[in-house]
Nucleic acid binder design. Structure first.
Lengths: 341, 341
DNA sequence: GGTAGCACTCACCCTCTCCGAGTGCCAATC
DNA sequence: GATTGGCACTCGGAGAGGGTGAGTGCTACC
């Protein structure tokens, strides 16, 4: 074994011990807990090298070492081995998710499940409208001049908007519009929709054009709006439990989590990475409130491929292998269930 | 002024000072900050009486007094004066809420607004299905044997469920069922729906009855399910900010808040009280996790009357007058907007 | 390169003391 | 009878001081 290899072993040991104990780990404890076959003094030399390389740091002189974000990064990328779930756990996940009655329920159960499994904050992103296809458009008059537009996607998601008409609604026009819309949109995705919607106006009397145009605009806007992507959280209480993490920054973390925008940006950012499970560690989240947290996500989808992401947020000092495998397991079942229904 | 009156004055002063400073208040500080016209010694006698009556307590000997839950109760019921919002605040509330595009957005904006105004956790309950009327039922086939049932209420709320058929769906039967359902349900509330739905089965071929019955059941279940009531939260980060509140119980509070069931029970419980603004103080919440918090709620509704509740949760040591008026103001605008659209 | 020894550092814990805000009670006063 | 001034007492909290031990870096040695 080369000394480089041993250094990485030492790094792994430090991460594992620190995650387990939450306390800076010293050279003596390291040789005692792991059979490294060398003396503490040697470990100290290795530690000095690791510190030089920026993988570990000392909270203060004469304290043990703590992994840095860079150290966790190396651990995640090169040193960790997956921690598969037990068969019983897998079955429990499957059956719990299969009992869901609709999309909302599936999402709700998934997010609770991840929070439970990881004992951290769970995040589930609703299936993205842009990647799913429209199945049906429903128009419902609510009051003489207001029209409720309901969009239903093939993932079972429902979006709604209200349109205000310039004059009283004509039931016949609404019915024609409904029919036309459904012919135009059925099964199409956003990029293909533009032209179909544009020509739709031609089929109506000039007097009705404002209404038609308004409805079309609403449909387009709804489909285009990133902000309509939603994430659901669970397990925020897990942040406060266990105590010692997050000295005084818990408030900042909660603030960041309440900002859907922050989470959505992070999620879409992570979607770029071409890896099965994406991890953002500490400062890599690019958000001041999440400096002391890490974010583990993976994609789930339906038969057409990736649709959205699920993940878990916890302290940078988290059990990465366990979190990664829990997140991935739930995503798999989620994909299976969405494809099946 | 009778001595009883002064004692209540003292109680009010204690509550106000404690809320402002977060520190036990002593007799000397009291006479200095409030012009009570008597000496500290007199106040001490009054304090002894108030303590005897259970309205205040000492954290430890030789410390000042702190209001008990009972003390806050008296303060809220008899001693506090409403703190009206400024005209600018009112206008800000109104215009912020009026920009909402749909029901979800209205609810979302309301909850953020309350969190912002009270600097506490805000709670908004979605309009209750049981009290709102059905406006429309939409059936959408998703796959050969799956039918998506979408319910739309007159408050603009949308509920969805999937039904699995025993055999492939017949588009004509679905269309007839859609028509019949909409004739049966239009504008009716749950109690009146039962019979209409029951007789609906007679209008179909025996072979189609299972499907019809399944859909009817789903409609009934959806409307009947209490658990389908939903609450939305915002401002949980406010719990952690400011620091000194919640010694170590923050985790428990967050846990309680994550339990929709807990909040819904509390909300429905509070709906029983025949007062404009309901307050639950500390142990009155009947929940161990909320022992150190108070919950201020009020009803909002549409033109038909009360529909659901909005509120704010904060430490028992909160500014009750301010919280109550903020909650009430938002509820009023909410009512106006729901009635108007 | 690995190891043993050694001096040094420094957070943490424990104890002790001091301080002062605040109380309760009592006797004097209005 | 209510109010007040005076006074002894209590006790949490802040601060100082000292001991302890885990942990390090360095150097000489194998």
């Amino acid at each position: 074994m080369s000394s480089d290899d041993r250094r990485l072993d030492v790094l792994r040991a430090i991460v594992e011990d620190y995650v387990a104990t939450r306390e800076p780990v010293g050279s003596r404890a390291l040789v005692e807990r792991h059979s490294l076959g060398v003396s503490p003094a040697t470990i100290r030399n290795d530690m000095a090298a690791l510190e030089e390389a920026g993988y570990i740091a000392q909270p203060h002189t004469s304290a043990g070492r703590v992994p840095t974000d860079a150290g966790y990064r190396v651990f995640v990328d090169r040193l960790s081995t997956v921690k598969p779930l037990s068969g019983a756990e897998r079955r429990a996940i499957g059956s719990f998710l299969e009992d869901a009655v609709d999309l909302d329920d599936v999402v709700d159960r998934s997010v609770r499940l991840i929070a439970q499994l990881t004992q951290q904050v769970a995040v589930v992103q609703y299936p993205s409208l842009r990647r799913s296809a429209l199945r049906h458009v429903e128009l419902v008059p609510v009051g003489p001049r207001h029209l409720l537009v309901v969009l239903i996607t093939d993932t079972g998601r429902v979006e709604q908007r209200t349109v205000e008409a310039e004059r009283d609604l004509d039931e016949l026009v609404v019915a024609r519009l409904r029919t036309h819309l459904n012919v135009s949109v059925a099964g199409r995705r956003l990029p293909q929709l533009g032209d179909a919607l544009a020509t739709l106006v031609d089929a109506f009397e000039p007097a009705d054009v404002p209404l038609v145009r308004a409805v079309v605009t609403v449909v387009e806007e709804t489909l285009a709006l990133d902000s309509e992507e939603r994430v659901v959280l669970a397990g925020t209480a897990n942040l406060a439990r266990g105590g010692t993490d997050f000295t005084g920054t818990l408030g900042t973390v909660l603030e960041a989590l309440e900002e859907q925008v922050v989470l959505l940006r992070l999620l879409s950012d992570m979607a770029e990475d071409a890896v099965p499970v994406t991890v953002r560690i500490g400062h890599e989240t690019q958000h001041a409130g999440l400096l002391e947290t890490s974010f583990v996500t993976t994609a789930y989808g339906d038969e057409h491929g990736a649709v959205a992401r699920v993940g878990s947020i916890g302290p940078t000092r988290m059990d990465y292998p366990a979190t990664m495998s829990a997140v991935r397991a739930v995503a798999r079942y989620l994909t299976r269930i969405l494809a099946g229904s």
